[in-house]
């Protein structure tokens, strides 16, 4: 019997993998992909609870999360392209224009 607990643990695992990706990698593309992983983990949580409570609200909010993820990817990749035009790098250690 698959319970909500199973889905929550899967979501926690995916979220933690995303956190590790954001914290350890130096490639900006992989960092953006890790953020998508975390958003997917959140979606699993929302839908698992929606299924548990027999309500459709969780799915509606998952749609909003997907919307925000699409917007985030569009703007984030736009920033990556703009940055690559200026510095020719995808390494976040070399992108230190605003550090002092």
């Amino acid at each position: 019997m698959v319970t909500t607990f199973h889905y929550l643990m899967l979501s926690a695992a995916l979220f933690t993998i995303g956190v590790i990706g954001v914290l350890t990698r130096r490639n900006i593309m992989v960092i953006l992909m890790s953020i998508e992983l975390m958003m997917n983990a959140v979606n699993i949580n929302l839908i698992a609870f929606g299924d548990r409570l027999q309500q459709v609200t969780g799915q509606v909010f998952a749609i909003f999360v997907i919307t925000v993820a699409a917007a985030e990817a569009a703007v984030g990749l736009g920033i990556v392209i703009a940055m690559f035009k200026n510095k020719e790098t995808m390494n976040i250690n070399e992108i230190d224009l605003m550090k002092w």
Binding site: L23, R26, N27, A73, A74, I81, F84, M90, N91
Partner: peptide, 21 residues
Amino acid sequence: LFVFVIMLISVERAEHERQYH
């Protein structure tokens, strides 16, 4: 969209660098 952006920027250099902080 991700794959498109990867296509636009060069990936060869990043492969030879250190991958982790």
